[in-house]
Design a protein around this nucleic acid. Structure first.
Lengths: 103, 103
DNA sequence: TGAATATATAACTATCCAGCAATACTTCAA
DNA sequence: TTGAAGTATTGCTGGATAGTTATATATTCA
């Protein structure tokens, strides 16, 4: 383990961590299902629960994570809360992988 | 939790898991550092250890993971083993995130 | 052969997190 | 105000894994 000064990295440590954090948010099948559920427009939590065939608590936790992470946005209408895509980049990445990685 | 037959998913469960697995490989700062270290051409394990400012054992483990995952390729030359990028998609994704996600 | 260099693997620990069950919070309607 | 529907949160547990240390394997050369 030597000093890191031999070749200055193109990206800083903080930037690498930010990038890794984004990948991490997309690194769960259930969260990809949620993305699929909301990619056509706003969906309520209950709709997402049904579309993903998961439980309310689990979906709510993943939604909070994606919202906090800046990938989704939310809007309350009465008792319901509607989530939609805030960062199209997430969808773009999924599509890129689908087209170039899957058999 | 209802049946999942309400809206047939665009991507199958297996496909979502494959996509998530790729994101997972990119979801570690140290592996992104390694990608940076080899993105300009083949590098030996020792070179990568120095470039990433990590330990030999740790780098070797991450390299094995990226190699098994199909992102890197390897070639032995004498005592040294050189790793290089096999899936340019990985670099493309990093660049996409850098350009669209970082401040 | 034997030693040195280069890389890989094994065993271990600490940490993180997905999913679950239970409960709390919020909003609306009667 | 009370009950019900919708959503969020908390505490828990099992499984996965990053990093470390130590050791094993592979290759070259004297």
């Amino acid at each position: 383990m030597l000093s890191s000064s031999e070749a200055p990295p193109v990206l800083s440590t903080a930037q690498l961590e930010e990038i890794a954090a984004l990948f991490k948010m997309l690194a769960e099948p259930m969260r990809l299902r949620i993305l699929q559920a909301v990619c056509k427009g706003p969906r309520s939590v209950n709709e997402i629960v049904h579309l993903t065939d998961s439980t309310q608590a689990n979906v709510s936790k993943h939604l909070a994570l994606l919202y906090t992470g800046g990938i989704l946005q939310r809007e309350r209408d009465g008792q319901k809360v509607f989530y939609s895509v805030k960062a199209p980049l997430a969808l773009k990445m999924c599509e890129l992988v689908r087209a170039n990685w899957l058999d």
